[in-house]
Write a protein that binds this DNA or RNA. Structure first.
Lengths: 339, 339
DNA sequence: TTGTAGGCGTTATCAC
DNA sequence: GTGATAACGCCTACAA
């Protein structure tokens, strides 16, 4: 029953036709005219033997793997879950499968090899910090790849979201509530998303005629956010509101506020980028800016599928960005914390 | 510069040797005696041309893909991040790459095809609920696969953690603090992990000579946990402590407790399975049971690599399981909530 | 409507 | 020490 390997030849023999015929039937060759009964016989044989085309042979012949790759820094960052979902769905729509890997367990090297060896037809990179060596190599490889949610340093090959607009939305919400001393808990130094969000904060403050508040950088983790927020609160004139670059850091930042014996939103309002399920279950529920992450994944795959090796892409995805107001933001108490 | 495809033949021509020689050099064939200068020439040609072996051709020839698959229900569940990390590292150790996919974006079908077509050498399934049809098919496929963190219904092909012991540890912690009315916020009905954790709770209660407290099931999500906890609190004689089957549900459960105007741990103590970064940043920091998730991923790949198609595996991974006491558990106030 | 034949890039088994 | 040659399983002009 369990045959290790059923080939086209086995099916052909059973159906008493040539392998070529089986191949065309299996591939639904439109330019094939065949007697219904013959097709029946072939299909029956395929079913009976449990035949599945060997992908290696097929790829060797057609130089297409019907597979895309997505590489990211860390599965623990929940924003990637959403991106992956969109990318997987898009790949499935193209009749391909998406394979995902991270740099926590293994390096980018493995996925680069997949690409170099033609085992995947394209690679999506969601943040490959400090891998500029490999990136240069990638660019020499005459093969489709794209950065997701992050601009590529040398070549123009990326799709990003409008992080600047998201930041403005957040800051405008705080300004609308009456805040004037609005600090920024930024992302990691040099990270491209962090840069764009900081720029948005800066622009919105300027537009509102407000002085640029204090800014401190931190990794996109609770621990990073906690440390950064502590620094912000230690300042002589602490902010009445904070725009946090990422929801994970915000979780840590909230803890720092509690540690300091202060209350959110009475003493400090807080709004963060990226909306997660989690946000509405924090204490208090966190005001966030929702961005179209699944859409980003979807679009990335879509572009990969239709990209020529030397094309350049520099796209800011135009999708819905909205503020989800919850209970972590409120008008400032006059005088602010300590007043 | 950008050559679409450099083959063995190109290298052989440049190095003025036969393709066979190049192949042996590239593969470090130990049974090859070769003049050092020849090897030099070959290596130089490889470097100059940027040759990379074509994986399709190699797989066709050797019937090995050097690739393992891991399939899971949802990347948004953070416990999988840890499992993936271990699995990726183990695969890299075997000179393979691990590719991961989820059922949120596409179905299991794509990954089953990878396996059936020989594009991956084995498949790890971390929860494929309700896919029993595909599972049966998998078993007929004479190909290595394994369930992770979940027992397989028909065949014995799984590695799990000692969830029962984890549950006992949690309950014993609560009993040690003096709790007697210990409820259980269980996982989804029918989920295998949920079953094992419930069994542990039941056993620990019996061993402590305590009556089995109330139990209510919920999905492993904040929303599920919130609803279930609300139900538990509405009972005439609410528990003084809750053993929650999963950290995600616990986050929702904490919110329900706050909604009810109660305090953790004064009115209700709470302990949950699986330790995440996040846990120490909740309000209050959540007491958890840490399980060796990365180890589970590692072991899964290890077994896949050395499994014969008809072998059966039923392993309870023997790794460190420890209670991480934080501030969500404390001795009960005499009389309990409302007393 | 069906069959034939060549080759995709490797590796393994020989022979020289 | 090195080279020739035959598969691996499939696709696709082209021929019949």
């Amino acid at each position: 029953m369990k045959r290790a390997r059923v080939t086209l030849a086995d099916v052909a023999a059973l159906a008493k036709v040539d392998r070529a015929v089986v191949s065309r039937v299996v591939n639904n060759d439109p330019a094939l005219s065949i007697r219904p009964e013959t097709r029946e016989r072939v299909l029956a044989a395929v079913a009976q033997l449990g035949y599945r085309p060997n992908a290696a042979a097929r790829s060797l012949r057609t130089a297409r793997a019907h597979m895309f790759g997505l590489f990211l820094p860390d599965f623990a960052n929940p924003v990637y879950a959403e991106i992956i979902k969109g990318a997987e769905a898009a790949a499935a729509g193209l009749g391909c499968v998406l394979v995902t890997g991270s740099s926590t367990g293994a390096g980018l090297g493995g996925y680069m090899d997949l690409l170099g060896q033609g085992r995947i037809d394209g690679l999506l990179l969601a943040g490959a910090e400090g891998e500029s060596e490999l990136l240069a190599q990638l660019d020499r490889m005459a093969v489709p790849w794209l950065m997701l949610n992050r601009r590529s340093p040398a070549v123009k090959r990326y799709v990003i979201l409008d992080d600047e607009r998201a930041a403005r939305l957040a800051v405008e919400h705080l300004v609308g509530l009456g805040h004037r001393r609005i600090a920024h808990l930024a992302g990691p130094e040099g990270a491209d998303t962090a840069l764009r969000r900081s720029a948005g904060w800066r622009a919105a403050m300027r537009d509102a005629g407000l002085p640029e508040g204090p800014i401190v950088a931190a990794g996109y983790t609770p621990a990073g956010g906690a440390a950064a927020m502590a620094a912000l609160l230690a300042a002589p004139e602490p902010p009445t509101a904070v725009f946090v670059a990422n929801v994970a850091s915000a979780i840590g930042a909230m803890e720092s506020v509690r540690e300091a014996g202060l209350d959110i939103p009475r003493d400090v309002s807080m709004v963060a980028v990226h909306d997660l399920d989690l946000a509405s279950y924090l204490a208090p529920p966190l005001t966030t800016v929702r961005m179209p992450l699944a859409e980003l994944g979807r679009r990335g795959v879509e572009l990969l599928g239709s990209l020529k090796p030397d094309d350049s892409v520099a796209e800011v995805l135009d999708g819905p960005i909205e503020l989800i107001a919850r209970r972590s933001t409120a008008p400032p108490v006059s005088g602010g914390p300590g007043g």
